[in-house]
């Protein structure tokens, strides 16, 4: 177990934000910060202080830089403010005035249309973002509901011989027939291999596959939801060849945890 207070006091988080740590240590801290909100909070405070300090040094500027970037990366619909160029011509012939004025209104109209397009794009973007956040929220809500259920049992899956640094955590709910599993403590899956989760009954030892776990590294950051209607007594995770195995390969048993009935 990590002593987060010791980590916070160590000065490593400040160095982490500055990019002054070796890459492997930075990776460790990135990982720890996902599991320990108090560490993440400290990192955010340090980062905010440094961002404010740096921003305080920034010279005054106009917005030209972003406009140039936008032009380079090919952003469309750049709004160019056109000068009100018709007024000097007002004394000229009525026909000229009409021509120029109509030109102006044509431009103004175009500009307005462009602005509308921009605003609509932005709206669309925000809506997508909103939908995603809502769906993440509802996932969290249903996860939380299971985790806070008194029937849910937390099972620590400890690293087994040869894989001592691995670990995983399962949340098992026998009533709702669902198990959540956190596999952040497993190393990245080697190519053409896959982790497989097993529900075990002891005495006699009988493994039942609960399926293979996703291999995308992004899914390591989430609690994975797994349907599990079995009367599980222990969970095990093995590394198997792509596609999974019918029976667990015990030489590659990474983690194992027995449900504490106490």
């Amino acid at each position: 177990m990590i002593d987060t207070k010791e980590l916070i006091d160590s000065g490593d988080l400040e160095l982490y934000v500055c990019g002054a740590l070796p890459a492997n240590r930075a990776q460790e801290i990135a990982q720890i910060s996902k599991q320990h909100p108090e560490v993440l909070e400290e990192i955010i405070s340090i980062e905010n202080a440094y961002q404010r300090l740096a921003a305080g040094l920034a010279p005054d500027h106009n917005d030209e830089t972003y406009a140039k970037l936008e032009a380079i990366i090919g952003a469309k619909n750049k709004v160019v403010k056109s000068p009100s160029s018709w007024s000097p011509y007002i004394g000229w012939a009525a026909a000229g005035l009409l021509l120029i004025a109509s030109g102006y209104f044509y431009n103004a109209n175009n500009e307005t249309n462009e602005e509308i397009v921009q605003i609509e794009q932005q709206k669309e973007f925000l809506e997508t973002e909103n939908i995603e956040i809502e769906s993440i929220n509802s996932q969290y809500a249903s996860t939380l509901q299971v985790l806070s259920d008194p029937e849910t049992v937390k099972v620590n899956l400890a690293g087994q011989a040869g894989f001592e640094s691995s670990n995983a955590v399962a949340f098992y709910n026998n009533e709702k027939n669902v198990t959540y599993i956190d596999i952040q403590g497993l190393p990245e899956v080697p190519e053409n291999m896959v982790y497989q989760l097993w529900s075990l009954t002891l005495d006699p030892l009988t493994p039942t596959s609960l399926g293979t776990l996703p291999i995308e590294k992004e899914s390591y950051n989430e609690l994975l939801r797994i349907d599990n209607a079995y009367d599980t007594q222990a969970f095990g995770i093995t590394l198997e060849e792509a596609g999974g195995a019918d029976a667990p390969t015990l030489e590659r048993l990474y983690t194992l945890g027995v449900i504490d009935k106490g």
Partner: peptide, 22 residues
């Protein structure tokens, strides 16, 4: 997403400008 890029720019440009200026 260019829109996302523009918002990342908004969020970080001041601090990065300051670092560069220093």
């Amino acid at each position: 997403s260019e829109m996302a890029f523009s918002r990342v720019y908004e969020r970080y440009n001041e601090a990065l400008r300051g670092i560069i200026f220093a």
